[in-house]
Amino acid sequence: MPHHDLAAELLSGFFLLLEEDPPEVIFLVGPNHEAAGPPVITGRRPWQTDFGLVEVDPGAVDALVGLGLAAVEEDVLAREHAMGTLMPYIKFHAPEARVVPLILHRGLSRADLERLAGALAAELGPGRILVASVDFSHYLTRPEAEAMDRETLATITAGDLDRLLQMGPEHLDSPGSVAVLLTAMAAAGADGPTVLGHTNSGAILRDDLIETTSYFTFVFTHR
């Protein structure tokens, strides 16, 4: 799902689906835009929103830290909009849900991403979901963005992690987050992805000349 407020319609549509069966825990993985701190960052502080606090699941955070898969770095995490943008939606649509925030540097190895994905897959189950907070093509015109998005979606649908991890911001801002999602979903035996929505900022603003950011929402479901 996206992490720009401009894509609010896609965000709201996704979270309205969650209202039907609100999760208890949301594992939330996304980019570290600042590229600051350790390779994978998490934290234990709650997130303040206009609708109240979003609490963190301390047991899950401690488990990932204990396995050496993430490190706590509260200040970097607090500044990351890939996490912060989603917290009001989470609190409004799934008010009792706890989160496990994880932000990733670019350049993590496939082996490191697979280890993280394996640990997350083991934590999933009824009431416990994994969400990737990712924006797709950047800095392109609307037609260029739509062509690039078709290429990225084909790579994701094929599960081609090697190709995915070679992609730059012209395709998406966090290949590692999507790789973690794909690997965890395969380990969990899920079907997908099913695309719920796709657009870009040029389409939203009705301007084909601006540099765009593109957005997808897609889901995996239990077999």
Rank of each mutant, 00 (worst) to 15 (best):
D5N: 09
L153V: 06
R98L: 10
F51H: 14
T183F: 05
P175L: 03
H105K: 01
E80Y: 02
F220S: 10
L153A: 05
T194M: 03
T155V: 15
L113A: 07
G43F: 03
D57E: 15
E80F: 00
S174Y: 05
Q166C: 07
F27M: 09
A36T: 15
A63P: 01
R110A: 03
L181T: 12
F51D: 08
G37A: 05
P23T: 05
L18A: 12
D207C: 07
L165I: 15
V54P: 00
T152P: 08
H4Q: 12
T183I: 02
I156Q: 04
A7Q: 02
D135M: 01
R150A: 12
D208T: 11
L172M: 10
T157S: 00
I90T: 01
A70P: 11
Q166G: 12
V100W: 10
Y139D: 02
H222G: 08
R223W: 08
G192K: 04
L6K: 10
T49Q: 04
E211T: 15
A97K: 10
E74N: 07
E144Q: 10
Q166T: 15
A203R: 15
N200R: 13
P46F: 05
A154S: 11
V54N: 02
L69F: 14
R79Y: 01
H222P: 01
A179F: 02
E20T: 03
E170T: 12
A158V: 01
T152D: 08
M83N: 15
V61K: 02
S137V: 10
E74A: 08
L124P: 14
M167L: 07
P22H: 07
L16I: 00
S177G: 14
V219Q: 05
L86G: 06
P95V: 07
T155M: 04
R106H: 05
R106A: 04
W47C: 04
E34V: 13
A117N: 14
R115L: 09
G159H: 05
D21L: 14
L18H: 08
M148E: 13
A117F: 13
L53V: 11
T155I: 12
S214G: 15
L108H: 09
L11Q: 14
G118A: 11
T49N: 05
E211L: 14
R115H: 07
P58H: 11
T155P: 00
S133R: 14
H198T: 01
I204V: 08
